[in-house]
């Protein structure tokens, strides 16, 4: 029987806007890695932006990791726990934040998966599908970190499940 995937890694952004595509690019790397390690307890998802239906996507998971590009000042990437109380409303609401998705998930599904946001520093946002050189370096650094985190969580969950059975 196929093992239930308790972890979802969800990249978002527009790959047609250069570094805005860092999230989807990270998902491609993770998918390649998972194709060599199908036993790992991780599924992926990807879209242009987050929206309300993603509350349902994370509602059945133990762990959700969102991956996005960022303009914020930082070294190469940041990895922060998502706090649902930081959910804020945008003017036209054609997209929502990870905090909004988690907040909605808690309120309508009564589910609170551990949720993180991996933000990868980008620099160029014009039309085009190529990541900038520095963004690509940041992506690789963030990817190495993410793999390590996912492996750690994968083993933790296996241990928890074994303990539950015992």
């Amino acid at each position: 029987m196929k093992q239930k995937k308790e972890i979802v890694v969800y990249g978002y952004g527009n790959p047609g806007r250069q570094d805005d595509g860092l999230g989807p690019a990270c998902i491609r790397l993770i998918e390649n890695w998972l194709s060599q390690h199908p036993e790992i307890n991780v599924q992926t998802d990807c879209n242009y932006q987050l929206n309300i239906e993603d509350a349902e996507v994370i509602s059945t998971r133990k762990l959700a990791i969102f991956v996005d590009a960022t303009m914020a000042e930082m070294e190469s990437f940041s990895f922060e726990r998502v706090n649902p109380s930081n959910a804020k409303v945008e003017f036209t609401m054609h997209a929502v934040s990870p905090a909004f998705v988690l907040d909605l998930c808690q309120k309508i599904y009564d589910s609170s998966p551990e949720t993180w946001l991996l933000s990868i520093k980008g620099y160029e946002w014009d039309f085009g599908e190529q990541l900038s050189y520095t963004a690509l370096k940041n992506l690789n650094t963030a990817y190495d970190f993410l793999k390590g985190f996912l492996l750690k969580k994968h083993h933790e969950y296996i241990e928890q499940n074994v303990n539950l059975i015992q």
């Binding site: 309300i52 239906e53 409303v89 909004f100 309120k107 309508i108």
Partner: peptide
């Protein structure tokens, strides 16, 4: 209040409507 004038506000006060919104989008 703009902070509740959205689907999260609906989820608190009319959860069945919020679920409909999410599942119709899906």
């Amino acid at each position: 209040d703009p902070d509740t004038r959205n689907i999260i506000g609906i989820a608190l006060n009319h959860p069945e409507l919020a679920v409909q919104g999410v599942m119709m989008r899906k």
